[in-house]
Every structure is written in structure tokens, then in C-alpha cells.
């Protein structure tokens, strides 16, 4: 070994060995045929697409191993399209690789920095231009320009004002009021306390006059989860215990973290789990957060029964439901 291991002159590109297609006419012919076959495959794909689009009904299903029953039309159009595109590309690449010149070429780079004289001239031009404005001397113009520009920035923001209404108290309030009946969702039926067995859970909404016309923005804050436990299972403050009725406890179903529907109720552990970010709430302790990112318990709805024995809210929620927001004033 010697120093020539590291070529001192690295401007020379090593000469590549010629390809089989360069020296062997047979190989060249073969490559040409291969390219033609690939183009033909692409054509077959296009035909398959056309055939499937026109002649295959959309309710025909065929069994494909591993994949199961597949819609024949969707599969035919898809595979046809994939073939027609894929083999077109493969053919072009194969053509380029085997039959087009594979000689590498050298381009030279230039430095991106402009020549010194250009740069000097540029600087000079800019300086002269700036000096011509004489901002430094005309203080009044400078100040008024600044003020105008600052004001100029406001209208574009203001013009977006009518995108939506002001929040007002919408995040703080729900449609629950004292005396609102709890009705099943879907079904819209009022619920007797005796309808719920121990271990039962039911999603309810506040009764409204036109249940078919509920706005989604109401469904985004009104859902409540009713859960029945044995009264002795609760470990609540007397105040919170008074909000339950005969072992039935009601929580907002909207997660206090990011507003997903908290609904995975584990009957044995009496935990509620949110499927979005796995915040876990202990129902027996007033939906206290025992795991996950939620920082607040789920708001509890004060419930009782009315004269007919149907479950009703005794009062509105005493705190905003759903995720936190800046104006949220909680104790």
C-alpha cells in the first residue's frame, strides 16, 4: 500500500464499467423487450380500469385471501389504475437505466457571494436611496408614519370580527335549570329513579320542547351521565352527597380536560375513563381525577325527583362544564 490509496487528484471521475446493454446486442434487445412488456402491462391496467368502471356493478363482492370479501368494482378500478400508472413509471425508469446513456457529467459550481464590486455598488445604492428619504431629518413624518402604520394593522383584524358571536356566557351555562327533566338520549324518555338498577348507566339530556331541533352546540355541553351505585359506596362530602338521589349520581359527560365524551364507565372499579387522553375519574369520590391529564373533576349535577317520580335537575350546574378557558372563574 502506498499513498496512492488516497488519490491526490480527485477531479477525475472513475470510469464506470460498461453495462451489459452497452456491449451485448442480445442484452440490449432483451432490455428493449422488457420495456415493451412493462408498457403493455400498463395498458392492461388501463383496460382493467375501463372494464371495471363500465361493466362491474358496485354490489359485487369477490373473496380475496387475507383481505376477505372485497368490492369488485372498487378493487378493479383501483388495481387497474395502480397497474397503469406503476408500470408506465417502471417502464420509463427501466428504459432510462438500461438503454439511455449512463455517462455521468460534471457541472461546476460558482460561489453565491456576489463580486466585491457588485456588493459595494449595492450598498452604495441602498445608502443613497435611504439617505434620499431623509427620514432622520423629518421627525414629524417619521412619527406620523409609525402611527399610521400601527393603525393600519388594526382594520384587517377588525374585519374578521363578524366571523362569530362574542362568547358572552355561553361557555358558563348549559340548558339545565331547576326542574329540568332528564331524558334518555336517544329516545327522549323521562326516567324514573327506579328505572336504574345498581350498576346501571345512562346518558341523558335536558328535556326540551323540540328534541329534534337540538343544536349540536347544546349537545356539546348538555350531556350528562347518570350512574347508580349503592348509596354506601359513595365517599362524598355531605354537600355533594346531597346532590345525589338514592344512589344515583349525575356528572357532565363532557371531559373537563378537552371536551371529549367521558363515557367509559367501569362498573366494578366505579371509574370513568375518557377515551381521548385517558383521564380517569373516580365516581365514588365525586369524579375526582385519579389518573391522566385532566385537572378538575367532572362537574356534578344536582338531581332529585319531581312529583311524578321522574328524575329532574334540582339546580343548574354550579360550574362551567367542559374544557377550561381563560375567563373560567373557579374556586
Amino acid at each position: 500500500m502506498s499513498n496512492e490509496l488516497i488519490p491526490s487528484d480527485n477531479s477525475a471521475i472513475p470510469v464506470h464499467a460498461p453495462r451489459a446493454t452497452d456491449i451485448n446486442p442480445k442484452a440490449e434487445k432483451r432490455a428493449e423487450q422488457q420495456v415493451a412488456i412493462l408498457f403493455a402491462l400498463s395498458g392492461i391496467g388501463s383496460l382493467l380500469l375501463i372494464y371495471s368502471y363500465i361493466y362491474v356493478a358496485n354490489d359485487v363482492f369477490i373473496f380475496i385471501p387475507i383481505m376477505g370479501d372485497q368490492n369488485a368494482q372498487q378493487l378493479g378500478i383501483g388495481i387497474g389504475m395502480a397497474m397503469s400508472l406503476f408500470f408506465l413509471g417502471i417502464a420509463a425508469i427501466h428504459w432510462a437505466k438500461t438503454l439511455m446513456s449512463d455517462k455521468e457529467v460534471v457541472n461546476h459550481r460558482h460561489e453565491f457571494r456576489s463580486s466585491d464590486s457588485d456588493r459595494e455598488e449595492f450598498v452604495k445604492t441602498v445608502k443613497e436611496g435611504v439617505a434620499g428619504v431623509e427620514l432622520g431629518r423629518r421627525k414629524l413624518i417619521k412619527r406620523s408614519l409609525g402611527a399610521a402604520l400601527a393603525l393600519f394593522a388594526l382594520p384587517p383584524v377588525l374585519l374578521l370580527r363578524d366571523l362569530g358571536p362574542l362568547p358572552k356566557k355561553q361557555l358558563e351555562t348549559t340548558n339545565w335549570k331547576a326542574g329540568t327533566r332528564l331524558v334518555t338520549d336517544p329516545g327522549n324518555r323521562p326516567i324514573l329513579a327506579s328505572d336504574l338498577e345498581v350498576g346501571a348507566v345512562v346518558q341523558v339530556l335536558p328535556a326540551v320542547e323540540h328534541p329534534d331541533e337540538r343544536a349540536l352546540s347544546d349537545i356539546a355541553k348538555d350531556p350528562v351521565l347518570l350512574i347508580r351505585l349503592r348509596p354506601e359506596d359513595f365517599q362524598l362530602t355531605p354537600q355533594k352527597f346531597a346532590m345525589t338521589h338514592d344512589g344515583i349520581i349525575a356528572f357532565s359527560k363532557i371531559c373537563s380536560h378537552m371536551g371529549c365524551a367521558v363515557a367509559l364507565y367501569e362498573q366494578q372499579t366505579k371509574h370513568l375513563l375518557c377515551p381521548c387522553h385517558q383521564s380517569t375519574f373516580d365516581v365514588t369520590r365525586g369524579a375526582k381525577v385519579i389518573f391522566g391529564p385532566a385537572a378538575r373533576p367532572l362537574p356534578q349535577l344536582d338531581i332529585t325527583v319531581d312529583a311524578q317520580g321522574y328524575l329532574v335537575a334540582r339546580a343548574a350546574f354550579n360550574e362551567p362544564v367542559g374544557p377550561s378557558f381563560w375567563e373560567r372563574n373557579s374556586q
Partner: peptide
């Protein structure tokens, strides 16, 4: 097990 009860009155 973990599954809550869905009684006949709430889901007929």
C-alpha cells in the same frame, strides 16, 4: 365485569 347495566327502562 366492567360493563355497566343497561336496564330495560333506559334502553328498551
Amino acid at each position: 365485569q366492567s360493563m355497566p347495566v343497561f336496564s330495560d327502562k333506559t334502553i328498551t
